[in-house]
Design a protein around this nucleic acid. Structure first.
Lengths: 107, 107
DNA sequence: AAATTATTTCAATTCAAGTTGATGCAAGTT
DNA sequence: AACTTGCATCAACTTGAATTGAAATAATTT
């Protein structure tokens, strides 16, 4: 409740959901090193193109990656600010963590 | 690939998946303030007990929360180290990322 | 020991997410 | 203009996750 009224929860949820799939996690790990086009990713991950496209869309809609068109290739790269948003969301848990005693459950 | 061979990818995935559901995110936000028993969470979230129990189990298995039994109540609290693991996983993207020039949208 | 309370588990159902192959589209090539 | 290439989208299908109500368990009280 007190953690972040300043973040958009929907975006946070979409971000975590995007990163909760092994293929998508592999994608961002590959993109972490360098910008890659779809066919590169396809090859490196050894999955079908339409399957990859599906996952790229989810990552893109979560704001974690962004496309750049160059001729007929589309290069994807990480959108770091969105990673930072997620990172900072998580950091709030640590930062404001209580040293409060447990509430006693009494009726 | 290059990001973290030192993390267990399965744990990371489970962590993100756990945080990708609105109910579970609400749970950890409530627990961020203080330890709570199941009945408290149930009441605050206004959901059925079995439903909550299902989500608590997922969070617990992801290592994000942990139970503490006191009599017939079970108090759940955050397991901060696991939040830190996720936070640090995300931070690696920022830290080792190639410094790209800010791209200006020219539409 | 029976009754009560807090919580988990189970089986059945519903709903959302992932996969597949085909089709469409836009950019580049001939 | 027709053809190819790189990618996205669609519809049908398969799989997995979430919800529900009922039953099971376990600690507590009477």
């Amino acid at each position: 409740m007190q953690v972040q009224t300043n973040y958009d929860l929907t975006t946070i949820l979409a971000g975590f959901r995007s990163l909760s799939d092994p293929i998508r996690l592999s994608v961002v790990e590959l993109l972490q090193a360098q910008e890659l086009c779809v066919c590169d990713l396809c090859e490196k991950l050894d999955i079908s193109q339409s399957k990859l496209s599906f996952h790229l869309k989810i990552l893109k809609e979560a704001g974690l990656i962004r496309p750049r068109q160059a001729g007929r290739w589309i290069y994807y790269s990480l959108n770091l600010p969105q990673f930072v948003v997620l990172e900072q969301y998580l950091s709030e848990y640590r930062r404001f963590s209580p040293v409060l005693p447990a509430r006693v459950c009494k009726d």
